[in-house]
Computed example of a mutant assay.
Amino acid sequence: MKIKDIFERKKFVFSFEIFPPKPTTPLDRIYSTLDDLKGPSPDFISVTYGAGGSTRDRSPQIAIDVKNVYDIESLAHLTCIGSTRDEVVGVVDLLLESGVHNILALRGDPPQEAVSPFVGGDFSHAIDLVKFLRERYGEKIAIGGAAYPEGHIECDDPIKDLHYLKQKVDAGVDFLVTQLFFDNELFYRFVERTSIAGIEVPISAGIMPVVNKNQIERIVTLCGASLPKKFVRILHRYADDPRSLEEAGIAYATDQIVDLIASGVRGIHLYTMNKAHVARKITSNIETLREGFVNDKNNEEALL
């Protein structure tokens, strides 16, 4: 099933993101994680590429196994920077032949050893990949795109950033998944702006439970996410108490999700960081709310 159809059939879509282990780490580790993530019954699981494509050889196979071994819809990340059209076709054809019909089209990061500005491959931006995929594969695939509630870290003009997003959607994106954020008000303002701009595809909110202090430095460096005062207080209070910080991080993410659901969010995409026990706790915390959406949908269908 294509993910755009899941959004059409369900009032609320709940999904996970995982990443492949490093090339030096046995693949068994990710399958152990998937064993634990199957229980919460996500609507789909996305599989990332590594930074600079460092794990891209493993990503398609894991995405295929999510679909065919675990019987969960799979969203395969596909970064295009430094790639040729033939390389992209090779990956997408393999996915389609294996029953995976969902692609998250991303620019990706240049290789770590690359000089700036990086030049290489047939694609410069995610929109180039979206256009190519839509032209070549039509409706055989569902295409997801990334969105940035606080704006892309490389674009200092929020209006221009929204303009680029609209162009990407118009080029063929079926749904959006946002970058992580810790302040829901930023997300609500972003959704309001997308509506004004005429962006009508479903938007899934990206939530990352922060369970150790090392994550924060990486997050701020990579995506520039702002940290609300409430969040900073939690970090200061539990910085030297890893167990308490994990519990506080789970609680904070749960509160975010409950508020988002109450406000009518179309989907939650949980960045699991391959920590299945964290994802399971959060899923358990919101289980009643998820069941409520299923019952609401069933009641609506009974009236038709």
Rank of each mutant, 00 (worst) to 15 (best):
N298P: 07
G206C: 07
D122Y: 06
Q256D: 13
I196A: 12
F181I: 11
P111Q: 08
K213T: 12
Y188V: 01
P20A: 12
R280A: 08
F190M: 06
N102M: 04
P60A: 01
S116E: 10
Q215Y: 04
I127N: 05
L270Q: 04
I196H: 11
E17D: 13
R290V: 04
I216K: 00
V294R: 14
E8F: 03
F14V: 08
R58C: 03
T178S: 13
D259L: 06
S15K: 00
L106I: 08
F187K: 01
E185P: 06
D43Y: 06
F182I: 08
I18S: 09
P158G: 05
N68Q: 14
I153S: 04
A114P: 09
D36V: 14
I6K: 14
G120M: 11
S284A: 15
Y238W: 14
Y49H: 12
A239E: 15
Y252K: 14
I219Q: 10
S263A: 14
E287Q: 15
Y164G: 05
I207M: 07
I286H: 02
Y252T: 07
K2S: 08
V91L: 12
I30E: 00
H163V: 13
E97P: 00
F182P: 12
I62M: 03
V119Y: 05
P60Y: 03
L227K: 07
V115W: 12
E17F: 07
P26H: 12
L222F: 13
A302I: 06
I203L: 10
I6T: 10
K281Y: 01
E113R: 06
L106N: 01
V265W: 00
L180Y: 00
V88T: 10
L176K: 00
L133F: 09
F132Y: 09
Y31G: 05
K11M: 13
E200C: 12
S59E: 05
I234W: 05
V220A: 03
F175E: 03
S284G: 15
Y164Q: 08
M208L: 15
I30S: 00
G264V: 02
A105S: 14
M273S: 11
P21S: 08
Q112E: 15
A239F: 09
K11E: 14
R233F: 10
Y31C: 05
T24W: 11
K10Q: 11
E154R: 14
D183E: 15
E291R: 15
K166C: 07
I268H: 01
E154Q: 14
K297H: 12
I45R: 03
D128C: 11
